[in-house]
């Protein structure tokens, strides 16, 4: 189990970071997912751990989104929405883009592209973000992605198609 988690933790963190845009929240999400996997499924065959971990991770991310939505509703209701707007510029993903604007250097351009992709993914609706990352980066099949997202295979295809379309438009400037 230690070996499996060691190989999965950095990708899991990247997925959580893109979803939340916050390092502390992303670390909490990954730790929570690890704990749930170890406690609930350590006795299962090692071959099942990958899909199970992905399903747990996506579920924890969805829970985080729901909590955030509720928190934001309460903030707006309590009249603290202005504070959120004031701090919107502190989004770490947006800051990364600002710090790494395309320059003449090849490495700089690559860093800018990575930052722009992170930000573009972060800006997508959660379902599109999940469909894109699970299918295109994690390499899961449609059925596995649907299981991890808790939706139908048709929904996965729809979300993925919309995600690709949106990303193409947003990352137009980073084409070589």
């Amino acid at each position: 189990m230690d070996h499996f988690l060691a190989g999965a933790e950095t990708r899991a963190y990247r997925l959580a970071w893109i979803a939340t845009g916050d390092r502390e929240e992303a670390l909490d999400i990954v730790q929570d997912a690890m704990l749930r996997l170890v406690k609930g499924y350590a006795a299962r065959p090692a071959g099942e751990w990958g899909p199970l971990f992905q399903r747990i991770l996506q579920s924890v991310i969805r829970d985080w989104y729901r909590r955030q939505a509720v928190r934001n509703r309460w903030r707006r209701w309590l009249g603290r929405g202005d504070e959120d707007e004031d701090t919107a510029g502190d989004d770490p993903l947006q800051t990364r883009i600002a710090d790494s604007r395309p320059g003449p250097d090849g490495e700089q351009r690559a860093q800018a592209a990575v930052a722009a992709l992170d930000a573009a993914l972060h800006a997508l609706p959660l379902r599109q973000q999940q469909a894109f990352l699970l299918r295109q980066w994690e390499g899961l099949g449609v059925a596995e992605t649907a299981a991890a997202m808790g939706c139908s295979e048709g929904s996965v295809k729809t979300h993925l198609s919309r995600a690709i379309h949106a990303l193409r438009e947003k990352l137009e400037d980073h084409r070589p």
Binding site: L5, E9, R23, V30, M34, V114, L133
Partner: peptide
């Protein structure tokens, strides 16, 4: 490729905290 590059660029502090989180879970 960009996503892989982002994973490779993860800072040492975050990597250390992920290791700690894994040990804590186990």
């Amino acid at each position: 490729a960009w996503l892989d590059a982002g994973e490779g660029d993860l800072d040492p502090t975050t990597r250390a905290r992920l290791r700690a989180a894994r040990r804590e879970a186990l």
